[in-house]
Computed example of a mutant assay.
Amino acid sequence: MVLKSLSDEDRAQARAKALRSRTRRAEIKESFRTGNISIGEVLDLAATDEAVGRLRVADLLEAVPGVGHVRAAALMERLGISANRRVRGLGRKQQAALKDHFS
């Protein structure tokens, strides 16, 4: 597949958008880690905020103190969530399972 050639201005806009998205995802993970927002609020934000919707579930879980890569993977397996699933891609049962786990 051939990618279209981007002008310098388009490339700069894309870099700026990517930076805003990464910053937003970092803010959400930090807020979740400190308890300022709940898992339910993150899931609600994912429906409207593209950056939050593209956040990987594993990255969100690893933001919790005491949860690393291994515990996050074990929790996701127990809840029936694929290892590469993003927050927006979660089904209703998976969202309910996450809410139950964190409540």
Rank of each mutant, 00 (worst) to 15 (best):
Val2Asn: 02
Ser5Leu: 15
Ser7Phe: 04
Asp10Met: 05
Arg11Pro: 08
Arg11Phe: 06
Ala12Thr: 03
Ala12Val: 03
Gln13Thr: 05
Gln13Lys: 12
Ala16Val: 03
Lys17Thr: 04
Ala18Thr: 02
Ala18Ser: 07
Leu19Arg: 10
Arg20Val: 04
Ser21Thr: 00
Thr23Lys: 06
Arg25Ile: 05
Arg25Cys: 05
Glu27Gly: 06
Glu27Pro: 10
Lys29Ile: 07
Glu30Cys: 02
Glu30Ala: 15
Thr34Ile: 09
Thr34Cys: 15
Thr34Met: 14
Ile37Glu: 11
Ile39Leu: 15
Ile39Lys: 07
Gly40Arg: 09
Leu43Asn: 07
Leu45Cys: 06
Leu45Ile: 00
Ala47Val: 14
Thr48Tyr: 08
Thr48Arg: 12
Gly53Phe: 05
Leu55Gly: 05
Leu55Tyr: 04
Leu60Met: 09
Leu61Thr: 00
Ala63Glu: 02
Ala63Tyr: 08
Gly66Cys: 02
Val70Met: 02
Ala72Phe: 11
Ala72Glu: 10
Ala72Val: 01
Ala73His: 13
Ala74Arg: 15
Ala74Asp: 14
Leu75His: 03
Arg78Ala: 14
Arg78Val: 00
Leu79Glu: 08
Ile81Gln: 11
Ile81Phe: 06
Ile81Lys: 07
Ile81Asn: 06
Arg86Trp: 06
Arg86Gly: 06
Gly89Asn: 04
Gly89Ala: 10
Leu90Ser: 03
Gln95Ile: 03
Asp100Ala: 13
Asp100Ile: 00
His101Ala: 10
